[in-house]
């Protein structure tokens, strides 16, 4: 089965294979060993899932499909990029503040808090400029 797996790995871009192929084979072999112990049905399901996963993974690697977030829904009104960026900065500063508080770094938390207020004000002005309500 490992041979078929190795063959399917050749469907991936070369750089991807160089980085992950040997590791993927190792993980596949470990997982296959464990699934074999669960009986034929479990092993067959595992093999099928692995082969399909490789084919879809290879297609995704070539097409540049992003597995981190699902595709944006269609038909949603677009938002000006400067507002998107401003919102992203506000979110990042909040995340920074939360993280700093969680680690009892209150000086840093204060820094993020001040930054967040300024960024939020900038976001408000941008929205006003574009006639966008919250």
């Amino acid at each position: 089965m490992t041979r078929i797996y190795q063959f399917l790995l050749t469907l991936y871009p070369r750089k991807y294979r160089e980085l992950f192929a040997s590791e993927m084979i190792q993980v596949f072999q470990e997982a296959a060993g464990e699934r074999r112990d669960h009986g034929r049905g479990a092993y067959a399901g595992f093999v099928l899932r692995e082969m399909l996963g490789l084919m879809m993974g290879a297609a995704g690697a070539w097409l540049g499909r992003d597995p981190v977030r699902p595709a944006a829904p269609t038909g949603v009104p677009s938002c000006p990029p400067e507002i998107v960026e401003a919102q992203r900065r506000v979110d990042a500063s909040i995340a920074g503040m939360v993280h700093a508080i969680a680690h009892h770094d209150f000086q840093k938390a204060r820094f993020y808090s001040i930054a967040e207020r300024k960024l939020r004000e900038k976001l408000r002005r941008l929205k006003e400029l574009h006639g966008i309500s919250d």
């Binding site: 977030r69 829904p73 949603v76």
Partner: peptide, 16 residues
């Protein structure tokens, strides 16, 4: 007045 239904940048979408 335009209403934004949803932010469409990457950050606003949930993770898979």
């Amino acid at each position: 007045m335009r209403h934004v239904v949803e932010r469409t940048n990457d950050e606003s979408r949930p993770l898979t």
